[in-house]
Design a protein around this nucleic acid. Structure first.
Lengths: 277, 277
DNA sequence: CAGTGGTCTAGACCACACT
DNA sequence: GTGTGGTCTAGACCACTGC
């Protein structure tokens, strides 16, 4: 039954920028048939997009409480249930955190709970607490021109400015991870070895606080490799020792790649944990 | 229907078996304070449990369509919205699959879509289709008594009957994976090397069809190791070659462990893919 | 066409946290 | 108490599938 362009159901959604009244016919409603019309998009999806836009724009920062469901419903001129469904999905994606009785908050990496969402190396025996906090040591922080492959993955052009960081993580004095990071120079202007070294919390928390860059999701490619001479020295193993190679591309809002990282993990007494479901 | 434990809000739901009228005081409502009272459990959670129970009992088998939301609402004497929320969560957990216009179905491993939910080894370049179907070869299938460690992980007693299966997977003629599986003898009574060899589909699909065992989720522990002599021969690499060790404990409904598996993956031209979010 | 899941609303009431 | 998120209902209507 004749659906065109934007919408039957959606006519209501123009409310944010124009009248919520169905009498205001948009161009697409005027009978023009568009074979490439976008698929139907429910109201709550549009609300979700609007909230996401506010997050990106920094209207609410990590850790902030966003307006109540009721307030948002009023702002967007929809029912609370519709806002609710939008927030539900954003919470499922770990962009928002709901706290009953308190409110809904912008997710942040500066919480214990999300602390180990991205670092999946766990001790074979005992608990996380047993191994204590990871001790970090920044080995290097340089500004240079992006090699072709790095540029490609970060969505930059070859030769664009990037930052290269190298660090070692240890548990109870024993080095376990050596990592190399590549960050786009623009968003991370001003990042120095000192900034990184002085910080004690999770690196992604610092990225949020200092540069307004929030990592939202990441893709990892894992391989088994042999330790080369340099890495072997840093990790205290012999050359040739099997190591886990973890290559990560991390994205901020809107699927924009913001960090390329390659880690080499010792897995003698630890393992990379993954849940399949 | 369904209520045990305690409840304020739940008074409504006892309507099926007793009066919905608050005047009928249940023991817990009589002013007795129970410090160990179970936490509040919403109606939709209880519905979820009931549906799960039907799944476990085999009332609806993998691939079957379950009753419509309306029918289930009538059966459980709740509103459609409540059933909806229960089904939503079961669908999120990959236990059910919703198909608009058709119905809601019990998830199964015998679908292309879920085919690679558990096998995460992908080619570094090109697509899944490029590498073609995995060629499977069963090397061994023995019935024996469970070693202590295997028994512990499968929730059996040391010495209980278990099946041990060993197989090799290859892509385009090149072996890439050697796997060893341990299955509890009871649920898998009758499994033979022939059964396994004759089957062409995913192993978990065969488990569903032949033994009524549906794998629902799994936990993997990943390490980097060096190939031993035997493995090196099977995979066509030299001893000492770095390999990915993937140890998986797979669970069926109700978090019951049903399979222990250890795979050794070549990662020269392939990688283990993981999405963090 | 009828049957299924999907969206949206409006309103009532409960649980939880803070003040 | 007030304000927040959480649950539940009842009903309307839309979108998709297949007869």
């Amino acid at each position: 039954m004749i659906r065109i362009g934007a919408a039957t159901r959606q006519s209501r959604k123009s409310m944010a920028t124009s009248s919520p009244n169905p009498t205001d016919a948009s161009p697409v409603d005027a009978g023009v048939y568009d074979a490439t019309a976008p698929a139907f998009s429910p109201l709550y999806q549009q609300i979700k997009t609007l909230i996401l836009r506010s997050l990106q724009a920094g209207e609410w920062k990590p850790g902030d409480m966003i307006p109540s469901e009721f307030d948002l419903a009023a702002r967007f001129r929809v029912s609370q249930g519709t806002v609710r469904k939008a927030i539900d999905e954003l919470a499922t994606d770990n962009l928002l955190v709901r706290r009953q009785g308190k409110g809904t908050f912008v997710a942040t990496h500066a919480e214990v709970h999300t602390q180990y969402r991205f670092l999946r190396l766990l001790p074979d025996t005992g608990t996380l607490e047993d191994q204590g906090r990871a001790e970090r040591r920044i080995v290097e922080c340089r500004r240079l021109r992006a090699p072709a492959e790095v540029a490609r993955q970060l969505g930059l052009r070859t030769g664009d400015a990037v930052l290269q960081v190298k660090r070692v993580l240890a548990f109870a004095g024993t080095p376990a991870i050596v990592e190399e990071l590549w960050l786009p120079g623009g968003p991370f202007k001003g990042l120095t070895l000192e900034t990184l070294s002085d910080d004690q919390g999770p690196m992604y928390a610092l990225f949020e606080a200092q540069f307004g860059v929030r990592m939202v999701r990441a893709l990892e490619k894992i391989k088994a490799v042999s330790a080369d001479q340099d890495t072997a020295t840093l990790l205290g193993v012999s050359p040739g020792h099997p190591l886990l190679s973890v290559e990560r591309l991390a994205y901020t809002y809107n699927d924009e790649p913001m960090e390329l990282r390659r880690g080499l993990y010792r897995t003698d007494t630890r393992h990379y944990r993954n849940e399949l479901s």
